[in-house]
Simulated scan of single mutants.
Amino acid sequence: MDDEVDDEEEDPTCPTIPFTVAEKIRWRREWRSALVVKGLGRRVSYIPLARRLNFLWARNGEIQISDMNNGCFLVRFRSHKDYEGATMGGPWLLGDTYLTVHRWFKGFNPWKTEVTSTMVWAQLPELPIEFINKEAVMKIGEWLGKPVRVDRATELGARGKYARVCIEVNLTQPLISKFKIEGVTYLVQYEGLDDLCTDCGTYGKKAGKCHCVPAGQAM
């Protein structure tokens, strides 16, 4: 048994149910290849989500989607290859809503699980053409979050208007909204993150409504 019981505070009306380590290992085994999915900033419905994920993720085997509380869904995979593709791929969207994707962990509680990070596409408009390449854009991405990859057009240098990089960002910290190269300031546009203050980079508050803007200066 690995359940601990505090005898001093034992309540006879609230018994502690003991499970053995072997039992818990056995029951948790089937969830090891499961992902927790949740819409970023808004709730998503089961049916359109199931259709989308079956199209995107069920490449080599079936997936099972369980509707949880607090807008969370639990997705189990029969194919480990599909599981790794869903985990390492992305960012994933349903319409214009980002889907946050995280590995299941023991004791998962949808009411107590906070979304702290997600993968997003960041656009870097008006970069000089010599910086629109994989090496340069991935280096810029390191200052924005955890860079994952650039899109095909950026890698090939086939688009001169902007570069595009997929990054994993920490939503509990202000996002970088601008940067400088050789003294020139360039802006960062995070696709799909509408509730983002472009003045300080705080997610969940739009520019003009964020506390970082002094009263009377909001446009």
Rank of each mutant, 00 (worst) to 15 (best):
D194G: 11
Y186G: 02
L193K: 06
V213D: 03
L187F: 04
V165N: 00
K206Q: 03
K139Y: 02
A136M: 08
A218H: 15
I140M: 08
G145V: 07
T198V: 12
L175M: 05
Q217D: 14
G204A: 06
K139L: 06
Y203P: 00
Q217L: 15
C200I: 01
K206M: 13
G208C: 09
P128K: 09
E135S: 07
L193G: 02
T172A: 14
G145H: 08
A218R: 13
E142V: 04
P174M: 02
K209C: 12
D194A: 15
P147M: 06
C166E: 05
I140S: 11
T172F: 01
H211D: 11
K178H: 15
S177F: 09
Y190L: 05
K146V: 14
G183N: 10
K178N: 14
L171D: 03
A215N: 09
V137G: 05
V188I: 15
G145I: 08
T202F: 01
G160K: 11
C200P: 03
K206D: 04
Y162K: 00
E135I: 05
Y203C: 10
N170I: 07
M138D: 05
E135R: 09
Q189H: 11
E155M: 05
P214L: 05
C210N: 09
C212R: 11
I167G: 03
W143P: 01
A163F: 00
G160I: 01
E191S: 13
I181K: 13
A158S: 13
I132N: 06
Q173D: 06
W143Q: 07
T185V: 14
R152S: 15
I181G: 02
P174F: 05
L187C: 02
G208I: 09
K146S: 11
V169A: 07
L175F: 03
R152E: 15
L175S: 03
M138I: 09
L127F: 08
G183K: 12
G157V: 04
D151S: 04
G216C: 11
